[in-house]
Structure formats: structure tokens, C-alpha cells
Amino acid sequence: MTAVPVGPPRRLIELTVDDRTVRLPEGSTLLQACAAAGVETPTLCYLENLAPVNVCRVCMVEVDGSRVLVPACSRPAEPGMTIHTESARVRLARKVVLEFLASSVDVSLAPQAAGYLERYGAEPGRFGTPAPPAAAGVRGGAAPGEHEASDGLAAATVAQPVSLDNELYVRDYSRCILCYKCVEACGVDAQNTFAIAVAGRGFDARISTEFDVPLPDSACVYCGNCIGVCPTGALMFKSEYDMRQTGTWDEEEQAVTDTICPYCGVGCTLSLHVQGNRIVKVTSPLDNDVTRGHLCIKGRFGWESVQSRDPTGA
């Protein structure tokens, strides 16, 4: 049964998106206004179960009367606004922002990125050959306000070795677009553990524990909610990572089955991703009333016991 939120009735406001008039409740965002107008808006750092941080800047739209473009994900809709989502300014900004991302970060596992890059005709290769990856620990120790001089022929990237410091999940920060979602999920938006935060500054800003200590030495409780919100595959189940390394990961072959977590009385919905009759990862639906997509270590990772009884012994 789905709970129906009952709040005070909200006034409808009217605005224009790409010459179409839309009416929606006061307090809605421009992203919702665009959706109401049937306009699909690219987003990367936005997720419906987290507070918008408006940092990726791919959802920028043009609002008449505004000096600069505005982020659709967080900007409240106001009556009478005129929004343009396909103007030359919007298309150029979205294209170049996508190029910035794809030229500095490995977005090959970000499900939406390829479509966005194609839609805006982005050419991330035009800034030069990607620079070689940093050695382990270099980005984690970068001092704010300085950087090595370069000849500009190689395009700087965040490429670096994968962080493998625990049995449950890996952190591949070569894929991190710094969307802040994992920090939000680890903090007040879900888990309230605060094991990670954004450290450093500028191009060297990164997700880090205190003093960059490995996860087992940090406050991490392995709820995996950071993995659940990561849009680029930078945070990944160890099981998925291992299968990708051996080339056996195949989403086409996976079935997703919803069930209820058996561990406690809360009753979180688990979505079991099953490949070859084995659970390969666990998620929870974002719109689930109980979890809002978030789980704890038991629901997220506590399924090995199921498979250890596998008669094949695999």
C-alpha cells in the first residue's frame, strides 16, 4: 500500500517552458516544471532522495531576466517565469560541461553519460590527450592552492589507482565526478555516519576520510548507501567489481527480484540482482516508503549465507 501524503493544499503556479505553458504546485523546482512540459533534462548530481546540491551543472536552463543560467534541479519555480531549455546558451553550456566531465573523469560506467554526450555533440577529446594516472596517494595528499606546471599538451584527469581496502566495496575515484551524493548519503540525508567528506580544493578536491585513512580505519559502517547513490560506478560492490575484472559481469543476464529483508522487523525492500542463479548485488527502490533506497550493512551485503548453501559449492 502506498501512503498518500496529506499536506495543506498548494497553490498552482503557471510558467512557460520552451513556449509551453505548464501549471504546477508552488514550491516545485524548474526540473519538475521541465518534466511537466515533457522536456527531458540531463542530471548527474540530482537524486530524488537527496537534497539537491546543484554542482554538476548539466541541468542548467535559461530564465528570462537572469544574468546567468540557473540549475533546474534546485531553483524554485516562480509564477510567470519563462524558461528555455534548448537555446544556444543552454546547449553550449551543457555540451562544454559534459566535455569537462568526460575529459577529466572516466564516465564509461555512468549509465546516462553516453546519451548526454551524444545528445549535445560533446567532444571530450578536443582538450588533448588524457594525462597519465596519478600514483597511489598523490591525489589524496594534494595541497590546496598549488599544482605542478604543465605544458598543456596533456589534459589533466583524476585518474588514479582503484582503492581496494575492504571486502565489501571498492572506491574507483578515477570515475568520481564529485557529485557529493555519497557524502550526503553518508551524512544527514541518510546514514548520519559522516565517514567521508569532500577534502582538498579545486581540481584536487576529492572524497576522503580523515587523513585519507583506509575505510576499515574510518567511521564507515558499510551500509553501502554511498554505492546506492553513486551515478558513475566510482563506488561499486566488490562482487560486481570482481566480475567486471574477470569479464563475467553481464547485466543482460541479470534478473531483479524484489523481496523483504529477513534480518529485522523494519521490513526494507531488497532488490536482488541475480545472475546465473547467484545474487551479485542488492539495491532498494528509491521510491520505497521504508528505505527511500537506503539499506544497512545486513540488507546490502548480508547475502553470502544464501549462496554458501549453493549445492554446486561455487
Binding site: 560541461v97 569537462f100 566531465l101 582538450f127 592552492g145 598543456g152 579545486g202
Partner: peptide
Amino acid sequence: RDESCGQCVPCRVGTVRQEELLSR
């Protein structure tokens, strides 16, 4: 590039690409 806070993509990467381009 050194003083960008790094929060938003256009400035975090744009200031890097701008410096690289001028260096070239």
C-alpha cells in the same frame, strides 16, 4: 585554477582547461 573551490564542474575543470590551453 589554484583558487577554484572545486565545487561546480564548469569552474573546477574549466579553469584547468583554460590554463592548459594558454600554456599551449
